[in-house]
Each structure stands twice: as structure tokens, then as C-alpha cells.
Amino acid sequence: MRNDTGAHTLSFTATREDYRIAWLAALAITIHIAESMLPSPLPGIKPGLANVVTIAALLLYGWRAAVWVSLLRVVVGSLLIGTFLTPTFVLSFSGALASLAVIGLGSLLPGRGLGPVGYCLLASMAHIAAQFYVAYRLFIPHEALFGLLPVLMTAGVGFGLASGLLVRAMMAHFKSDAGPGAPTA
């Protein structure tokens, strides 16, 4: 970055990993915005395709990368849609944090650990659970909200499974292509 006088030069050294994260985050943000424009059959239910990118980042570059991709998506995405710091943002953000926490713990599992499907399912369910809890605590402390929980969780499991299969297909593609190595925490 250069200022107008040209007297000082401030430079960042962007690593290869930074570029990767930026690319993945950009992809996630695009999906995030596209999804927010999609009509939803039921309140609170979205496919959560952006989750695919987070899990891919986790499997390819580790948990820290997944955190960056996920948080950049939520913050930048909401800034672009104009929901930053609104309830919608608070819900997205809490869902993202819970997902990251759960997949972070999941990545500590010994042995072969979790694969794409397991990560996506966990992330999706944690996302729903956290959003639901935050919505109930902060916005709508109404007992009837619990009536929605089974439906939301069904959608969460369904979409989590679908995105897990998607990530698995992607990984197979990457592996045959470049082979970035085993996931690490």
C-alpha cells in the first residue's frame, strides 16, 4: 500500500496461505449473499452452502483457515447485505462461532477422526442449536419457539449431510489434482 507522498512504503507480505484464505472467503461470501436472496420455504431454514467452503478450508488448510473464512464471510457478507450488527448478523455470527468450536473440537479426535460428512453434520447442527438458543434468549423468549426446533434441526441434519457429500466430492477432486495433504489442527 502506498500513500500519496510516496515517502513511506507500507508493505504486507501476503503468504500463499493468505491468498488461499482470501479466495475461499470470497467464495463463501458470494454464496452467503446468494443464499440470503433465495426465498426460503420455512423461517430460519437455509441450505448453508457457505458451510461447504468452511469445511473445505478446514480439511485443506486446517482449523485456523476455517475460522478466517467463516468469520470473514459473516462479517463482510453482512456488511455487503447491510445486516451488520442487526439480529440477522448476531444469529449468523453465533451460528458460525458454534460451528467453528464444534469442528475445532472434532479435529482433535484421535485416529482417522472425522471426514467431510461428520464435520458438515456437526457444524450444521451446532449452527442451528446456537442460532436457536440465541434467538430464544435474546430476541423471542417465547416458549412456542421450541415448536420450531425439530423442523429446524431436521433441515440442519439434511443440509449438513448434503453439504458433507458435496465436500467429499470436492476433496476427491482435489486429491486426484494436487493433494494438499492430511488435515491438521
Binding site: 464444534v102 473440537l105 472434532g106 479426535l109 447442527m125 438458543y133
Partner: peptide, 25 residues
């Protein structure tokens, strides 16, 4: 030691998820 702690944490979290309001007052 780390993996076993992680195991406990993950299963605990799953339980917390499953039990989100588990006993309904």
C-alpha cells in the same frame, strides 16, 4: 493425553446439543 480430553469434550458437546433444553420443565 490430548486426544482423550478432546474425545470427552466432543462427546460432551454432542450431549449438550442433544440436551439443549433436554429436560423440559
Amino acid at each position: 493425553k490430548r486426544p482423550s480430553v478432546a474425545c470427552a469434550l466432543v462427546s460432551g458437546l454432542l450431549l449438550a446439543l442433544a440436551g439443549c433444553g433436554g429436560h423440559k420443565p
